[in-house]
Design a binder for these strands. Structure first.
Lengths: 202, 202
DNA sequence: CTCCCATCTGGTCATTGACAAGTTGCGCGC
DNA sequence: GCGCGCAACTTGTCAATGACCAGATGGGAG
């Protein structure tokens, strides 16, 4: 923010924080129109630098998206760490998807990323661990319920809800209500003993 | 070279079923490398036609993806209709995602589609109805459980599982087992009265 | 003060999506 | 059985883009 970007004429040779500027612009575009709408040259224009400048910070398109994904995993890990129980972790998962839709989309689009990137893998390990801890926080008196299954169940539910939410597939069901509140209700119907809708198939 | 390709007889001016050929090639590419890797010109080359031929059938890139999404909704609706109960519908949802990964990805990527397209909307209505019917099939003796919530819960769980599966986020948890079987177990732990892992928060 | 090198510039090339205008030949009406 | 309309396909073109390269710039370490 220390750069005189508000005065377009007096642009110094060195941007100051181009990496952050490019990332922020990218997040805006992705949140609005998806990763496919990203143009490195457009980001450069918006940051007021030459068309090749972004490459120095991110190498290429995949590099930029990988950096975003890594940042997303760190943010998600931080959010999950603050949750007190599994249900709250789920709520925070959904909230994360709402507040950081661009990060969220990119994090789970491995086709767009450099999956071997060290920073990405490190960050993924963070959010993975946070997820695992959240599941492990549930009293392990779940006789038949393997922790592995419980983890997949909880993750699937939160991830599916968040994904459908961002794709506007829950707009009807929401009817204007707060998504997090609805997720809380949904989780309550499933994760409460003796209250799940029975499939009747024994 | 006016090679007859491998298809029967020399390649006539009229391809015969170019629309289907383009779609099939597109599905291959998307399944392998995602929608972002799609190139209309490459599809044309693979089909042995000129670079502008696809436009006549699909107008543009969004048109092709919209056609794929519509077909996907029809296929999904068909698959769900054959399910006998909600859990089986979930299994079929997951299986659909596995057998038609390209369709699945595109169906839930509204940013790539012409969301106003009539064929798409019609097909969406089909799969929506199939989903609703599957949920409605559950004995409505779910006092506290609104049908709306139960629907969102079931859809979220299946969709999240399928999405994470395709993004290779469940590879570890699966350990080589069949995804559908694991989903069946996951659903069993949640959708069986008194067996869900308790969050302990009242 | 000087020089190193991260940062940024300008240029280039192949590829792509979209559009425009022309060509081919199937099949329908007569 | 025959011409002709129209859908299917063609070639040509243009602006935009990602990636790469050599060079200019200037902040800061020594």
């Amino acid at each position: 923010m220390a750069t005189p970007r508000s005065t377009p004429s007096a642009r110094p040779y060195h941007h100051g924080d181009l990496r952050r500027a490019i990332m922020s612009a990218a997040l805006e575009t992705i949140a609005a129109d998806g990763p496919a709408a990203l143009s490195l040259r457009d980001l450069a224009r918006r940051a007021g630098v030459s068309h090749a400048a972004p490459a120095h910070h991110f190498k290429d398109r995949a590099g930029l998206l990988t950096a975003i994904a890594a940042e997303g995993h760190e943010l998600l890990a931080g959010a999950l760490r603050e949750a007190e129980d599994l249900r709250e972790a789920g709520v925070r998962y959904v909230r994360f998807a709402r507040e950081h839709p661009a990060h969220f989309q990119v994090m789970f689009a491995p086709q767009l990323l450099r999956t071997g990137d060290v920073e990405l893998i490190t960050a993924q390990a963070l959010s993975d661990a946070a997820l695992r801890d959240a599941v492990a926080g549930v009293p392990a008196r779940d006789r038949g319920v393997e922790s592995r299954l419980a983890g997949v169940a909880a993750w699937s539910l939160a991830h599916g809800f968040a994904t459908l939410l961002l794709a506007h597939n829950l707009d009807d069901a929401l009817g204007g209500g707060e998504p997090e509140e609805m997720f809380r209700e949904v989780a309550a119907t499933l994760f409460r003993p003796g209250a799940g809708p029975d499939t009747d198939t024994a």
